[in-house]
Amino acid sequence: MMQAFSTWLTTTELGHYLLQCEQAFFDRAVADIFGFHAVQMGLPEVDFLAANRIPWQCHAAEGGKAQIICQPTQLPFESRSLDLLVMPHLLDFTTEPHQVLREVERVLMPEGRLLMTGFNPVSLWGVRRLIQGRADTPWRGNFFPLIRIRDWLKLLDLEPVAGCFMAYAPPLSQQGWLERFGFMERAGDKWWPLAAGVYGIEAVKRQRGMRLLTPAWKTAKPAKGLVVAGGNERHPSRRQTPSSHRQVGGDQD
């Protein structure tokens, strides 16, 4: 299914529209993520890591032009080895979404980042899917509700920290009609954000039981007596009592 979606995304007018929206999202999201290892899982024909500066990058998929051929349910990476994992619509086109997310949690470093996109069923895209059925791509995808995805992530200590909505225009097949509804794309974030056709999520892997260590600062104790500076030395000043006076010149009457 993922290969059929990749073909639809890169060869149809509606696919090109969606691709432009998602490329902009991933370019913004990956630009400031640093580390040593980054992987894009799925859609190897499109480079969603282009704006990232992590030195080691690769594209993995079940087939196509991927550098690593593998199943998303069995990623060939060591545990806690990846700083960034990008998954465009991977959960939409898998029969085992829970296992995919368990693999994501396994391979990410603590504080590693997951970026993913998915179709929103509560949108005009979801309406078209209900009307025409699920026989064709991309309508045969899972279209999981955003709230369900967020719950799955939290159960695996993958904390959603940012998000984005995109593809507000009706899912029309011709470019001319898509351009006529361009105003919906510009106004969508303000007026109807939850009705977007696609959502993007950025999540961070939190390490259970991990806590931040801070310096053990100690409060300075107040000095005894008043410290008086005299020349290059400092002497504590003590209050003198009459018995401590030394008599000079012998006894006095």
Rank of each mutant, 00 (worst) to 15 (best):
W152F: 00
R102G: 11
A223Q: 05
D32M: 01
Q74F: 01
S81C: 07
V107A: 00
G163V: 15
G230D: 12
A29V: 06
F5C: 04
F144P: 10
F181H: 14
E45N: 06
W8R: 13
D151A: 13
W192T: 01
A196V: 04
K205I: 03
M184K: 05
I147M: 12
D27L: 12
Y199K: 07
E96Y: 11
R80E: 05
T241H: 14
S244R: 15
S237D: 15
I54A: 00
T117D: 04
L114M: 07
A203S: 08
H16S: 12
P97C: 04
R80M: 08
P138G: 04
V107T: 05
L124E: 15
Y17F: 15
Y168S: 12
H37Q: 14
S123C: 13
E96S: 14
R128K: 15
G118N: 02
E45R: 08
L155S: 05
K221H: 08
P44G: 03
V100M: 06
Q20D: 05
G133Y: 03
L115V: 08
W217N: 05
E159V: 04
V248E: 07
H235M: 12
L213G: 00
L9W: 13
G182F: 06
K154M: 06
G209W: 09
A196R: 10
R206Y: 11
R129N: 11
D27Q: 02
M166Q: 08
R106P: 01
T95L: 13
Y168P: 05
R140S: 10
P160W: 02
G15C: 13
M166G: 06
I147D: 07
G141C: 03
I201T: 07
Y17H: 11
T12I: 12
G188M: 12
G63E: 03
L19R: 11
L90V: 15
F93V: 08
A162Q: 09
G133D: 03
Q207A: 15
S244C: 08
A203P: 04
A223I: 04
V30S: 03
T95F: 15
A216H: 12
M166H: 05
L101E: 01
K221W: 09
T95I: 13
P97T: 01
V122H: 15
R211I: 11
G15K: 06
I149F: 10
G197I: 03
R211V: 02
G63P: 05
I68A: 04
C164I: 03
L84V: 08
L49Y: 08
T241K: 13
C164P: 09
F77A: 05
P171F: 05
Q247P: 14
Q240I: 11
L90W: 11
P193M: 12
R211W: 11
R238C: 00
